[in-house]
Design a binder for these strands. Sequence first.
DNA 1: TATTTATGATAGTGTTACTATCTTTTTAAA
DNA 2: TTTAAAAAGATAGTAACACTATCATAAATA
Lengths: 223, 223
Amino acid sequence: MELQLQIKMNEGLFLRNPELSDLGKKIIKHSIIMIHKDGFEALTFKKLAKDIGTTEAGIYRYFENKHLLLTYIISWYWSWIEFQILFQTNNIKNPKVRLKKVIKILASEVEDDETISHVNESLLHQIVISEGSKVYLTKKVGEDNKHQFFKPYKDLCGVISDLILECNSAYKYPRSLATTIIEMAHFQNFFMKNLPSLTDFGNSKEESKITAFLSDLVFSSID
Amino acid sequence: MELQLQIKMNEGLFLRNPELSDLGKKIIKHSIIMIHKDGFEALTFKKLAKDIGTTEAGIYRYFENKHLLLTYIISWYWSWIEFQILFQTNNIKNPKVRLKKVIKILASEVEDDETISHVNESLLHQIVISEGSKVYLTKKVGEDNKHQFFKPYKDLCGVISDLILECNSAYKYPRSLATTIIEMAHFQNFFMKNLPSLTDFGNSKEESKITAFLSDLVFSSID
DNA sequence: TATTTATGATAGTGTTACTATCTTTTTAAA
DNA sequence: TTTAAAAAGATAGTAACACTATCATAAATA
C-alpha cells in the first residue's frame, strides 16, 4: 500500500502551486534547508535560485515574495501537525491522556515523514520554533488574516481547545491555554537551546522536561 | 523635588550613547514613533533621519544598524519594567499579592512615565508586544547573548522567578513559568487585538481578562 | 585661542527585491 | 503528429536599502 498525504494549501499563498511541479517542490525543499541554515532574514530568492539551479524569476513565478513563502511553509507545518495529532491520538478515549499526548507531540522533536519527500519535517519544526511567529508579527496581520492565511494555526488551536473542554467543560480559557501550550512548547525549546538561563532545563537540554513543565501547567489549571 | 531616572544601558548596543545628546534622544524618540506606526521592517535610517531632521550618517554614528537600535529600545523597556515592578510592589509583604501585582503590570497598558520625556512608554509597550521577540529570534542570538544584550530580560525573569519561589519554594519550574508569564502577557494581548479567535477575550478586548487568565494559570500551578 | 568632538552635507558601493521581456523547452489538446 | 499553450530559462533593468567614506562646519572644552 502506498499512500500519499497531500495538504491542501490556501491558494492566496502562492502564484503557482509548488506541490504540482518539480521546480515547485525544489523551492519548498531548498527554502527549508536554507532558512534552517542561515535564518529567514538571510534568505534571498537569488541565493535560493542558485541553490536550486534556476533563476530568480523562476521562484517569483511561484511566490510573490519571501514572506509569503515563509507563510506557506509555516502554514503547511501547522496543517501537518494537526494531522499528526489526529492520527496519533485517534484511538485514545481518555481526553486527559489524549491531551498529554498532544503536549508531547508539540514539544518533541518530530520524526521525518517519509511519505512527503520534498519536506524535511525535522528541519521545518526547528524553523517554526525560531521563525514561526514572524509570520503574524507584522503590520499586515489583519490583511493576511482576512485571506485566511492563519487558518491552519487557528484550526490546531481549535482542536486543542476542544480537547481541553473535553477534560473540563467548565474551564474558562480553553483557547488562550491552547495558544499558551503551542507557543510555549516552542519558546521553551528555543530558550533552552539559546538562552538557557531563562528556563529550568538549560543544563540537561532534554525536551522531555518541557513536556513535563507544560503538562504540570495545563493539568494544574484544568483539574 | 525633581528626580531623573537614568537606565544604564549595555555599551555594546551603541556607538555613541544616545542618552547624552539631543540628537541621540531624538533618535530614540522618533524610532519609537516610527516603529510603532509602520513596524520594524518598514523602518529605515534614511526615513528616520528625515523625520528627525538629520542625515543617515548622523544615525549611524549612534547605532551600527537597525537591529541594534531595536535591541536597545527593547532592552531599555525591560529595564524600565523591572524598575516599575520593584517600585510598585515595594511595600507589599505577601508574595502572592505581589506576584498578582506583577502579572497585572505586565499585562496592562503602561502609563507614560513623565520623568523620561524622550521615551513614550505606552508606544514602546506596544512595540515590545509585536516586535520584542525579533530581538532574539535571529541566528545571532548566541553572539548577542555573549555581549549580554539580553541581561535586562533575564534580570526580569530572575525577579519573577524568585517571587514564584517565595510563593512556593517547592515549585519546580520557576524560570519557565516566569518566561511564560512575560511572553503570554504579550502574546495574548497581540492575539486579542489581531487574531481574536485564538483567545477567549476576543470580543471584549479587555486587558483585565488577560490578567485573570494568567493569574489563574500561575496560581493553579504553584498552589 | 587652539583643539577636540559632534554634526551636516554629499557621494558612492554592493545588494536586495522586485519587474519586464524574450527565447526555449515541455506538456497537452486537436 | 501537429499545434498551441503553459512552464521554465536567460538576461536586463530599476528603485530602494544598508551601509562606508570624506570633507566642511559648528559647538564645546582645554
